[in-house]
Simulated assay, not measured.
Amino acid sequence: MAATPRPDLVLSHAVVTSDVTGNFDDIDIEAWLKNLPTHEYQRCAPGDHKAAGYTVDDDGTPMSINVEVIGAGLVIQNYRYEVASKHYCKMVSISDVLSPAGWTTTQVIWELGMEQLEGDQLRYVNTVTSHPTEEFLEFITASGQTFEEAAAARQEASGRHCELETPHYAQSIVAYAKAHASA
């Protein structure tokens, strides 16, 4: 079985925003991600987030490692930074998923962005898109589930999870900015 993503199929897609107050120039999502302690990550989605870390892939590409529960699945994400900047990061992972029926994989694209509305009024945009892999499609077929059923379950679980984590991420990013602002 191959962990080849199927970008033509969307397993789930969520865009959730949260408005916060902070100095836009001090915001640095890339630095926040690379320095996110496990306990702060856990506070961003109590009960769902289990562990976070930073590493690099064999080719030197920065990676964020996240372990979380989404719905009934334990998800281990190996996010590679595709875009990394102060106000926008795009992360892509072939994620291992442990469901009640066993292990499989999905592709998860996580986009984190901070927009300046007016003055210190900011809007954090958390976008999570999941695509099945060929392995996932074989996995659900073997378990007697249709893609439509799997997508509906994942959409509900991922949407709920993003609603939980987004305001906490926004507050954490602003707190990190304030703690590391140039004096």
Rank of each mutant, 00 (worst) to 15 (best):
D48E: 14
A45C: 10
D19V: 10
N66R: 15
S85N: 13
I27G: 01
Q77N: 10
M63T: 06
T21H: 08
H39M: 10
D25T: 12
I70P: 10
K34S: 08
Y79L: 11
L9V: 03
I70L: 08
G53C: 01
A84F: 07
R43W: 08
G73V: 09
L33Q: 13
I27N: 03
P37N: 00
L33G: 10
V10T: 13
D26V: 07
V20C: 00
Q42Y: 09
I65S: 06
S12Q: 04
D57T: 11
E30H: 00
Q42L: 03
H49R: 09
Q42F: 06
N78S: 11
L74H: 09
P5L: 06
Y79V: 06
P62S: 04
E68Y: 09
T55V: 13
Y81V: 13
L11A: 08
D48S: 15
G22Y: 02
R43V: 00
N35T: 11
A84W: 00
D57C: 11
S85E: 08
S18G: 09
Q42G: 05
P46W: 00
D57E: 14
G73F: 06
A72L: 13
G73A: 14
I27A: 06
T17V: 11
Y54P: 08
I76F: 15
I27W: 01
L11K: 00
V75I: 14
I70D: 04
V83A: 07
H49F: 09
H49W: 00
